[in-house]
């Protein structure tokens, strides 16, 4: 049989620019935002591009307080995504390359939405905020900046983060600010999977081998000092709670303690009796780690200020 006879039209076709058709329908639209791999339910999922569009049409604009608050949670997600992204191609098994990558993508997606919204208060884009702010202008909490360590440290960090974020986003779905509520409604569904993923690994590592148990105990010891900071109230959260925009972080603590406590008990792990760090991330006082994270993240964008990508 000659190659001509076996060739099918669908084997090769060029559809538009830069598009080698695969001959399979449903491969996505060409070159626009709808081709995003992270978009799970087309038409329903709220994307940062949708928020940017609403901003450009003047349909939404956060107050200064809301923007400052969105900056905090946006920075948390961004810095964590930066940390988690490092695992891709380095995870203990392929399934975890995918899982940690997925969690990183979700965190980055939430960050993009929150930062896009926050930026509207100051005429800045998500990228202006991510790439052209300096260390003290970031508002992430210290937990998110902590190094990946080994897989156990990453899981311990993720366990705390996802139970905290689940409580936070659940509360924010009732926000009087419609955009915060909408972003949170999308985020909470994804964070629910992060809870499940990290809780299962906490159980596996604690109940696996002697080595894995020792490592997860050490992991929790390293990240637990940064728990209290997540639940600290301040003037901003007080004003926002009074206005019905947000809740006091301290109000989320009891449920966080109960739910994480259940898993820790099942894993037969003690809550580490380690002193709590002073924190300060919400006011621009950061760990030593943040500078390096930003140096790597921002280097290319800063080499070409004003360029589009």
């Amino acid at each position: 049989m000659s190659t001509q006879e076996t060739a099918k039209d669908s084997d090769f076709a060029i559809e538009g620019h830069g598009d080698i058709s695969v001959g399979v329908h449903g491969a996505g639209a060409s070159g626009d935002g709808s081709a995003s791999a992270t978009r799970i339910t087309p038409g329903n999922a709220l994307r940062p591009e949708d928020i940017a569009l609403e901003i450009s049409r003047g349909q939404v604009k956060p107050t200064e307080d809301v923007a400052e608050f969105a900056l905090r949670i946006g920075d948390d997600g961004l810095i964590l995504a930066q940390r988690l992204g490092h695992w891709i191609s380095r995870a203990p098994e392929l399934e975890e390359d995918i899982a940690l990558g997925n969690i990183a993508l979700d965190q980055l997606g939430h960050a993009r939405s929150f930062l896009t919204y926050a930026g509207a208060a100051w005429g800045k884009s998500e990228d202006d905020l991510a790439y052209f702010r300096r260390e003290h202008e970031f508002r992430s909490a210290h937990l998110f900046e902590q190094p990946n360590g080994d897989f156990a440290v990453t899981i311990a960090r993720q366990f705390i983060v996802s139970y905290y974020q689940y409580q936070l986003y659940t509360a924010l779905t009732g926000s009087s600010d419609a955009t915060l509520a909408a972003i949170s409604a999308k985020a909470v569904k994804e964070v629910d999977y992060h809870r499940d993923h990290s809780a299962q690994w906490v159980l596996r590592l604690a109940g696996g081998t002697d080595e894995s148990r020792a490592r997860i105990i050490q992991g929790f010891k390293l990240v637990w000092p940064y728990v209290d900071e997540l639940f600290e109230d301040d003037e901003l959260t007080t004003r926002l709670a009074e206005a019905g925009v947000a809740v006091q972080p301290s109000s989320l603590r009891a449920e966080f303690d109960r739910l994480t406590g259940d898993i820790m008990a099942e894993a037969e792990l003690d809550i580490p009796g380690v002193p709590q760090s002073l924190g300060g991330g919400r006011h621009g006082k950061h760990s030593e780690f943040l500078g390096y994270i930003l140096a790597e993240m921002q280097v290319l964008a800063r080499e070409h200020p004003g360029a589009g990508w």
Binding site: L108, D127, E296
Partner: peptide
């Protein structure tokens, strides 16, 4: 970790 915009970072991931 060095992707020059958040959208590009997300797509690359």
């Amino acid at each position: 970790t060095r992707a020059p915009s958040l959208k590009r970072k997300s797509i690359l991931m």
